[in-house]
Structure formats: structure tokens, C-alpha cells
Design a protein around this nucleic acid. Sequence first.
DNA 1: GTACTAATGACAGGACGCTACCATTCCAAT
DNA 2: ATTGGAATGGTAGCGTCCTGTCATTAGTAC
Lengths: 288, 288
Amino acid sequence: MALPPPDPADSPLAARLRDVEAKLTRSEAMISQWLLLNEATLALETGASIASKTGVSEITVSRFLRRIGFRGIAELKAEIGSPAANLHISAAERYMRLLDGELGILLKRDADAILSLGTQIARPEWDAAITTIDQADEVFVTGFQTVRGLAEDFARRLGIVRGSVRYVSAHDSGLVEWIPSLRRANEARVLVLVDMVPYAREAETIVRTARGLGISVVVVTDELNTWAQSHTPFVFHASTKAGAFLESTGPLATLLNLVTHAVAGRDPEKARKRLSSWPAFLRDLGLY
Amino acid sequence: MALPPPDPADSPLAARLRDVEAKLTRSEAMISQWLLLNEATLALETGASIASKTGVSEITVSRFLRRIGFRGIAELKAEIGSPAANLHISAAERYMRLLDGELGILLKRDADAILSLGTQIARPEWDAAITTIDQADEVFVTGFQTVRGLAEDFARRLGIVRGSVRYVSAHDSGLVEWIPSLRRANEARVLVLVDMVPYAREAETIVRTARGLGISVVVVTDELNTWAQSHTPFVFHASTKAGAFLESTGPLATLLNLVTHAVAGRDPEKARKRLSSWPAFLRDLGLY
DNA sequence: GTACTAATGACAGGACGCTACCATTCCAAT
DNA sequence: ATTGGAATGGTAGCGTCCTGTCATTAGTAC
């Protein structure tokens, strides 16, 4: 009898179920079918609820999940919840096998966090923020403590695609850069602040100061930052809590790179020119 | 200022959260924000997991849910599941839809690059390198140009989980730190070098110098680095070529975070102790 | 029918999630 | 500085979920 055609948009779960489709017991067939039909709302179920809805015992559900390759219902939920698991693109599948240990979990979470940045760049504020940065006459960047380096790198890299970018350190310089200058009274200035909640507290003060001076502010921060929204609409969140000893800065780095790239995209020619002239320039200086 | 405009596609949950937005405590604001950002995968969470990810206690989450009108987390999940209307596309699918544009492709590549780090941490050299870092008496970290900040952050963060870590800048200090000291002749020293191919050229010289002084070397670099292998077995590659104007440093950041985490894992107690004493310490110094 | 194997369920133990009660901390007003 | 109230966290206890062991049932070959 006709097998269902291999659905191109086959979910990983469906694929697993199809693999064992041939030799299933009656109870298992029930579970399998129910899983396929209810895959969309699976996340809301528990092993027990599946058991009662399919009319089998909990343990049979548990056994079946093992049979199709999950170590338990937790692992099933992990798979359907992780967009990374749905990355059919390239050879993601190939790596998945390697990602069992603790570090592998952290990797998956970081990968998920990066994919979920899609929700951030889809917001209308994203384009507005990029425009603001692109058209600013001067761009300031700052960040503290464990993301300070990130902010500095971002400043360097943004400085490659457009000029007049500088990292400012509130403590070292006292923000003299911001003293209003009559000559430049009409220039558009923007501050990009990189922040992570657990540590920095003066960030809010700095943002307030900047706003007071008429400087636009873009905040790139983690998912727990709650104060930034009240000062500027340009707040973008990256998920940094992967469960490691320390938060993961990877998603923040990716988000910052995305900003750089998007700004470069506003004037590709200029950016490309700057990029090509930059290494030679640096070599001469012998910097770094 | 500037409240976010009422999103036309406002979910019931979002509406409830907005209702109470005005008068929230700090913890509640965090929970609220996290719920908004992670609504798509909420079904997979538990009250406890939300608590740990937002850094508040379970009971605060429980209280907050009551405050916004649910009798408990079960009722929240029920609400998410019932208007199946807007969930007919699975949460995962909704993510993928956001990943279509040019930036979305970059995100996918970065996510993929991170997953592929699994092949790096699976190599036997990984454990050996972590052991070397863990047991070293002194750890040096360096990096140039557009990954210099990454290296500095890594040094700071590694310095939280174990002592005697410092960033060295070949150009600023002339590497005086490395001058052999008789008193410390038998100490184990290790250098962690963060490198990206297109830019730095003196990296190899520094590695050779370090080896000559009996310093172990760990190199964290991109996929194009070919010279490091001949100096040390501890070379780990992250894929940084995502096709953007500039390379993506996200995977490198993730890999470095992984190193930090793995080292912390060698002595979790000590690391935890250092971590907890660190913020207070910093606050007193008033640094950054 | 009998005997053997596979499938399934009942029960119990362990783990984890959720909430009630109480202690502690934080904050603001005086 | 003091104080009162709100906010938050810790501990404990109960309930639910999940899985291991053993017993029971169903299916099958002779």
C-alpha cells in the first residue's frame, strides 16, 4: 500500500516516526499516529496526558519514545522546541549527533538564541535604528565589564564600514566627547550601548545623559534588560542565558555583527572601499 | 517616553502584560519582558525554568502569574493552547519564517557555525587543552585588532572562574610578563591566543616565542588558519565566514565562552565561590 | 490446548514542579 | 539614621510526572 510521499517539509519527528512505521504494535501505532496529528501542540502535553488521550498506559508511551530514539519526553520537547533542530539547511544534522553532552546543550541553546534574533531584526525599530546609525555624523559606542571588549570590537568594526565611530569609556574620559560644541550643534549623534543586566548599573545614567544632550541611543542588551525601553525605542535583545556558569556573549556578538553588516548595506560601495583601504592603513601604523 | 505601539497582532498574553506594564516591580518587569520575548516557546517551559532563566525565584514567577490573572502556570499554558488559531503554524515554523531575508541567512549561517563547534569540542585535544588551562599557574590571553576585545572579555571572564589570568598586549608591554623568573621556574604557564586570519601576522611570532619559553599555547581561531597546527596541538577552529561584509565573531565568542565554562566545570565549587564574590568586589572598586 | 514470546499494564520509587508559610532584604518616607 | 511596608527568597510539603521492576495479557506456532 502506498506509502505517503516523503514530505519535503518533513519534521525531524515525522521522519523518525516514518523510520519505524513498518513494525509497530497496535498501541505504538496509536501513539505514533496521535503524535503526527498533534505535533503542533505537543509542547503542551505531558507523557501522562498523551497516555490518557491515546488510551494506553504511561509506560508504553515512555517506551515508545525510547524506541524512536528519544531518551524521554524531555528530549522530545527539546527537539521540537529547538529551531536549530529544524535547520535542514546545510549539514546541521550531521553535527547533532555530537551534541549530546553538557557542552553540546550549551551549543544548541546558543544556536537557538541566534536564530531567535530573527524576531529582533524583523521589528520596525530595527530599520529605523540602522538608519539612525547610518546617517549619524558621529557614533559613540560603549559597554562595561564583561561586554566591554565586545563593544570595543564593534566600534572598530563599525569604524571600518563608516567613519566617525569611537568607543567611549565613561570612567576613563568622563564623557568629555559629549560636551556640546557650538560649531557642531546640528550634527546628529548616536550612542550604541552594549549592556548586560547583572553587572552594569550606571548604564541607565549614561543613557539618560545622552538623551539629555539630544543624542539618539541604540541599546543592545540581553533579554532581562527592562529599563532601556523607557528611554529609547531602539532596544534589541539577545538571549544570553544558556545555563552556563557565565552568560553567553555569542548571541550579542552576532547581533552586533548584524548591525555592522546592515549599516554597511546602506552604502555598500563606500563600505567596500573603506574595507579595502583599511588593512594597508593599519599595517603602516603597525598598530595592535 | 515612547510606549511601544499597540501591536495589531497582539496576543492575549501580550495584552495582559501590557495592562499591568505600568506598575511592575523590577523582578516582575523582568519576567514580563522575558515572557514577551519568548512567547513562542513558552509551552516548553515550566515555572521553574522561567525562574532560573530570568534569575528570580520560582515563587516570584508563581505570584506574577496570579497577578496577571492566571491561577497558575497550567492556566497560562491552557490559554496558549486554546486559541489554536494563531498557533496553527508551529512555533518553530514561525521562527523560520523570520529568517528569510539577507540578514536571516547570515543568522542561519552563524547558528550552523555554532552547531558545528561540536566537532571541535569532541576532539581529544579539547579535554587536554582544558586541563592545561585549568592546571596552569598562570594564564595569558592575547588577541589583535577586531578580535582583541573578544580576547579581553575572555580574559576577564576566565579570571572570574579561576585566578591568575591576564590579558597581554604584545605591543603595549613588549611581553615583559614573560621574562623567565628564577623563582617561578617550575610554574606551568599557558597562552590562549585568539586569532583571525586576514589581519594578524605577528601571531605566529608570538606563539613561537611562547613555545620557546616553555609556555603551552592554545589557539582559538577561524577555519582558515593553517599555521597554528605546527606549533601546538591545541588549535580550535570556529567558522567565521558567513558572507557578511566582515567576518562574524559570534562563533568565536561562543567557543571562548565554552572554554570558560569547561574550565569552571573542572572545579565547580571554586568557580562558584569566585563568581559570587566577584560582583561585590567590583562594586567596591567602582571599576569600569 | 499448550507453551513460548512479545506486548502491555500496575505499582512504586525518585525527581521535579508548584505553592504556602516564614524570614530576610530592599526601599522610601520621615 | 529609623522605621514600616512591600518585595523577594528559602524551606518544606504536596502533587504530578516519569521510568524501573515485576506481573498479566495477547498473540503465535505447534
